[in-house]
Computed example of a mutant assay.
Amino acid sequence: MRGSAALFRRGGAGGRERDDMTLGVLMLDTGFRRFPGDIGAPESFSGPVIFERVPQATARRIVGIADDGFLAPFLAAGERLVARGATAITTSCGFLIAYQAALAAHLPVPVATSSLLLIPMLAQALPPGRRVGVLTFSRMGLSAAHLAASGAAADTPVAGLPDAGVFRSAILEEPCADGFAAREAEAVDAARALVAAAPEIGAIVLECTNLSPHRAAIAAATGRPAYDLWPLVGMITQGRTRDVRC
């Protein structure tokens, strides 16, 4: 899977010229295997990207975060990305929606921390009687505060990956029989359970960026479109244009 990040080239239709934009990714301090399609995998990109790791911001510490304990390190890392040339910033963890407002207010470039920001827009786009559901890395960790930070309704249907499964163990860097197929099977099963519990779901948002490589399988298995962080990445990296004077 190829991401939609920062694919700008000179020239274009309509007498306009697009400047190259560089995506900056705020990375958790992790070492697990990332598959193509994951925002943290360099091979997911065909355009300019810069990664900035936030020391000690492990998955275990950030999943479910609802306080400002790591805000200062993320603000500083965002500043470093801008200094290195980033013109738009995203993150490798959907739970960083907790810092969306602070990062956007502090940094001089567009910031999209989490796919959860898509929920209000998708809710407006769905037919009457349909709702947006969320598949998350941790059902216990995803709180009402995270939904509120994204502008989502408090009663948004949510399901998480199995607590003792391979997927969670791999991301938390615990011993397990990790592999693409094992992760995908758990992701698909969790998505099916989400839709079974709330059949009115018309679209699924994938909170966890590590779910992106499995987006197509989730959509196929549930019969619902599945959305991850990449549409937001495309939006924040497509905002710079200027007129071309001949």
Rank of each mutant, 00 (worst) to 15 (best):
D178V: 07
T237W: 01
G64Q: 05
F32K: 11
F180R: 08
R33T: 15
A5W: 00
L122H: 00
G133M: 06
L161N: 07
L28V: 14
A219I: 03
R84Y: 03
F70R: 10
A203K: 08
R215M: 06
E173A: 06
R53F: 09
G239Y: 06
T156I: 02
A170M: 09
R84G: 13
T209N: 14
R168A: 03
A197K: 13
S92G: 14
L161D: 06
F74C: 12
G202Y: 07
A6R: 02
G12H: 05
L172Q: 04
V54R: 02
D228P: 02
S143I: 05
T156P: 01
R240E: 13
M235N: 02
D228I: 14
F74E: 10
R60A: 15
G78P: 11
A181Q: 03
G37D: 01
A187W: 00
P128H: 15
V132N: 03
T22F: 01
R10E: 14
G85E: 12
F95I: 06
F70D: 10
A220Y: 01
A41W: 13
R84T: 10
M21Q: 13
A105H: 12
R245P: 05
A182D: 04
A57M: 08
D155S: 14
I119N: 00
L211K: 00
D19A: 12
R2K: 02
S92K: 06
T113W: 11
P162N: 14
R130Y: 05
L172Y: 14
G179N: 08
D67A: 13
I97E: 02
G151N: 05
C208E: 01
T237H: 01
I201R: 13
S44M: 06
A153Y: 07
A196M: 09
A219D: 04
I97V: 15
A76F: 15
T209F: 15
F45A: 01
P225R: 03
A217V: 01
E173W: 01
D20S: 10
A193P: 03
R34A: 10
A203T: 07
G15S: 05
A66F: 01
M1A: 13
Y227H: 15
G11E: 10
A57I: 11
S150I: 08
E43R: 12
Q100E: 09
A159T: 03
F137Q: 12
D189F: 03
I97R: 15
A125Y: 04
G64M: 08
T30Q: 04
T113K: 15
R10Y: 12
A181L: 03
I201G: 10
A144I: 09
P36C: 07
A88D: 00
R245S: 09
G202C: 04
D163S: 10
I62N: 05
I39K: 08
A41K: 11
L28C: 10
E43Q: 11
D243L: 11
L107Y: 09
S138K: 13
E17A: 14
L142I: 06
P128I: 04
M121I: 07
G85L: 06
R53N: 08
S115T: 06
R183A: 11
C93N: 12
A226D: 02
E207T: 02
G24T: 10
L142N: 09
M1H: 04
D20Q: 12
R183Y: 09
L211Q: 04
